[in-house]
Design a protein around this nucleic acid. Sequence first.
DNA 1: ATGCCTCAGCTCCTGAGA
Length: 258
Amino acid sequence: MDIATWNINSLTVRLPQVLDWLAAHPVDVLALQELKLTDDKFPTTAFTEAGYHAQWFGQKTYNGVALISRTPATDVVKNIPGFTDDMSRVIGATIGGVRVICAYFPNGQEPGSDKFAYKMRWLDALREWVRGELARHPKLVLLGDYNITFDDLDVWDPVALAGTIHCTDEEREKLGGLTGLGLTDAFRLFEQPEKSYSWWDYREFAFRRNRGLRIDHILVSEALKPLVSACVIDRAPRKNERPSDHAPVVATLDIPAP
DNA sequence: ATGCCTCAGCTCCTGAGA
């Protein structure tokens, strides 16, 4: 089973690129973030024609998440149960016997801001919900745009960016709360190229200079960890015309494709 | 340099992203 995550920064703009990418990389599951469209605008037919099922949770202008899958998704959950939120950030479902949770973590803007406080509350709520999900579904993948780096390896200039958003101790402690549940960063299970990032600012030729951050992650449960045989960042779509600022991340699990 | 890109929307500017 191949499972991928990609923040596409507007599905309206990026749909042709998503379809091209799926044709070249026919993954079993693709988790999308930042759809930036309402549910009625979701391009269901395009995915059906490409041979995929879809579940989506949209919102006007901002946020919005979806799960694209070869086989139908069941037991779909939208946002974190019990956590009141007017933003569409989470969609979870069971696909091929694996519990898949796609999340667009809050940005947080700046440490000390209201948005940062919201990010911290959201992360606490996510952790407590995922704790229960893991108890119910030992085979679980939590993937998406985390908007948090694990450590300096994930940061192009760790000195200049120390303590700034995505790189604060507070955010990393919350990320540690998720790994503390028994979730593992699939990417670091393998030797990786130096300076591997999943996001680059649109400005200042950041991609060309490889000035980026690794903030898109695929975390796997203990039951799945021994079955992960690869995890890579696909930088190619970042070279497209009108690219997303994020690149897709793909993990291969040694379980039969559903 | 609170900007440099990019996207959505009450669109010729603003808010937000990361």
